[in-house]
Structures are given as structure tokens and as C-alpha cells.
């Protein structure tokens, strides 16, 4: 694989695999939770529909993020981007949960 044109090294594959599967799952979970909160608390959708809508979206999100993890040009920028959005989503979720309780 490396021999062909040297674009993909072994370490990079590992970094991309971790980004594509476990990191992706964490990020997608955070995004799903945020969407569920946003739809219910922010846009007045009833909580059951908000939760289900977010869940339905989550599978498409996971699949796209997995592709991005392998397609992104730079693995460093990929990880910076993952960490940044993960942090943003985490903080948003934390604020949302402390502002309004769950059912």
C-alpha cells in the first residue's frame, strides 16, 4: 500500500482508523444528543420525536464521518477538526443539560 505512491503510511492508517470508528462514534453520539436537545428545547418539537429524529440522522452522520476520516487530505487537520467539534458539542450539551432537566 505504501509502496504505490507513498500517500498512506502505517501510522496514518491507524490514526485514520481510530478517527473513523471510536472517535467517530463519540462525536456522532455527542452530535445526536445535541440535535435531540436542540429540536426539543430550541425548536419546540416534542421530546420523543426530537430524540427519534436525532437518532435517524445519526446513522447518516456516522457513515459520512467515516468516509471523511479516510478521505480527508491531512490526518493532522482531521484530528484537530474532530477534537474541536467534539469539544464544542460537549460544552453545548453540558450547558443544555444544566439549563433544562431531562424527563
Amino acid at each position: 500500500m505504501t509502496a504505490r505512491n507513498g500517500t498512506i503510511g502505517r501510522g496514518e492508517i491507524v490514526a485514520r482508523l481510530i478517527a473513523a470508528i471510536p472517535a467517530n462514534y463519540l462525536l456522532t453520539s455527542a452530535a445526536t444528543a445535541c440535535i435531540a436537545r436542540l429540536l426539543w428545547r430550541g425548536m419546540g418539537v416534542d421530546p420523543a420525536n426530537a430524540s427519534v429524529a436525532a437518532t435517524l440522522i445519526s446513522f447518516a452522520l456516522f457513515a459520512i464521518l467515516a468516509l471523511v476520516a479516510f478521505g480527508a487530505r491531512s490526518v493532522v487537520r482531521l484530528w484537530l477538526w474532530l477534537a474541536g467539534s467534539g469539544l464544542t458539542l460537549g460544552i453545548t450539551l453540558w450547558f443544555s443539560l444544566s439549563a433544562g432537566a431531562r424527563i
Partner: peptide, 23 residues
């Protein structure tokens, strides 16, 4: 879905049973 991605429900419901009742 609720097995693979339970976090959408968990974000709005502290108790899974409350969600089941709504559905």
C-alpha cells in the same frame, strides 16, 4: 436504532420507560 445509538433518547429522557410510554 435505540440499541446502537441510545444517546438521542438519553439526551431528553432520564428514564427509558418515559420514552417507551410516549411511543
Amino acid at each position: 436504532a435505540s440499541m446502537y445509538m441510545p444517546w438521542g433518547i438519553a439526551a431528553n429522557y432520564a428514564e427509558q420507560t418515559a420514552f417507551s410510554e410516549a411511543v
